[in-house]
C-alpha cells in the first residue's frame, strides 16, 4: 500500500450544543487512492470530510497531512455547485488562483485547461444560472482541480442530479481520476456510486457517527461505464449493501 497522505488519529467532534457528531475515529488514506465514505444521514461523514479539509478543527485528536497544507493543496466540491452567481463560469474557476495571486494570463490559461478537462470550454463565459445542474457541478469540479490539488474532497457532489447526469459525471470523474491520480475522499449515500468509483469504501453508522466497517472494493482497478452492467458489479454492490445493513442493525 502506498504512503498515507492523510491520517486522522483519535479524532472526534462534539458540537457546542453537546451533540457528538463523530466518535473517536482513526483513518488513514493512501496517496492516490479513491476512498468513499458511505452511510445514512447523521453518520458524521460530512463532519469527517470537513475535518480532513481543515475547515473544521476536531474536538480531540490529530490530523496529519503528508503535504504542506498550503491553500490549493486541497480541492473541495460541495453538495451544491456553490458557484458565485455574479461571476462567469471561468471567473469562478479562476478564483482559487486569483486568491493565491497567480498572474492573470496564467490563471486564465489554467482555468481554461480545467474547464476543457470537464468538457465545459464552450460555456466559459456563461453565467452559472444559464447552465444545467450537471454543468454547474462540472464547473465546481473544474474549480476544485484548477490548483492541481494533492487531495480532492467531495461531499455528496452528485446527490441532487438526475440518474443519467449522475452516471455521466461518475464516468467522467473516474476518467479524470485515472488520468491524474489525485487522492479522492468521496462522501455519498449511494452504495452503487461508491462501488463504481472507489478502491476502498469506509462504511459509517450514526448516533454517534463512527466507522463501522472498512472494505476494499473487489473490482478491477481500470474501469469504465460498462462495469455498471456486469455481474461482478452487481455482486459487489450487494456485498457492500449487506455490510451497510449490518452496520445499521447494530445502531442503538
Amino acid at each position: 500500500m502506498a504512503e498515507a497522505i492523510l491520517t486522522l488519529s483519535g479524532v472526534s467532534q462534539t458540537f457546542p450544543n453537546g451533540t457528538q457528531a463523530l466518535a473517536t475515529t482513526n483513518l488513514s488514506i493512501a496517496a492516490g487512492s479513491f476512498v468513499s465514505l458511505v452511510g445514512p444521514s447523521g453518520c458524521g461523514k460530512s463532519t469527517l470530510l470537513r475535518i480532513a479539509s481543515g475547515l473544521l478543527p476536531p474536538s480531540t485528536g490529530q490530523v496529519d497531512r503528508a503535504f504542506s497544507a498550503a491553500p490549493g493543496d486541497v480541492g473541495f466540491v460541495f453538495q451544491d455547485a456553490t458557484l458565485m452567481p455574479w461571476a462567469t463560469v471561468i471567473a469562478n474557476v479562476r478564483l482559487p488562483l486569483e486568491i493565491a495571486h497567480t498572474p492573470a494570463p496564467d490563471a486564465q490559461a489554467k482555468a481554461m485547461a480545467a474547464l476543457e478537462r470537464v468538457g465545459l470550454a464552450d460555456v466559459a463565459s456563461s453565467y452559472p444560472r444559464e447552465l444545467s445542474g450537471g454543468m454547474r457541478m462540472r464547473a465546481s469540479i473544474a474549480r476544485a482541480i484548477v490548483t492541481n490539488p494533492r487531495m480532492l474532497l467531495m461531499d455528496e457532489p452528485f446527490a441532487a442530479l438526475d440518474e443519467f447526469t449522475r452516471f455521466k459525471l461518475n464516468d467522467d470523474l473516474l476518467q479524470l481520476w485515472q488520468a491524474n491520480r489525485w487522492t479522492v475522499l468521496f462522501v455519498t449515500h449511494s452504495v452503487r456510486e461508491a462501488v463504481f468509483l472507489s478502491e476502498r469504501i469506509v462504511v459509517m453508522s450514526p448516533r454517534p457517527g463512527r466507522i463501522a466497517n472498512d472494505l476494499t472494493v473487489q473490482l478491477p482497478p481500470t474501469r469504465d461505464a460498462n462495469l455498471r452492467l456486469s455481474h461482478a458489479f452487481a455482486d459487489e454492490s450487494a456485498r457492500v449493501t449487506n455490510v451497510l445493513d449490518q452496520a445499521m442493525e447494530h445502531t442503538p
Binding site: D80, I99, A100
Partner: peptide
Amino acid sequence: NLRDMFRLYGATKTQTAMRLLIP
C-alpha cells in the same frame, strides 16, 4: 459554503470582502 470555500483557499479579509461579501 462560499464562505468556507474562501476560507479553504486562504482568502484575506479584503479578498473576501471585495469578491464575496460586496457582490
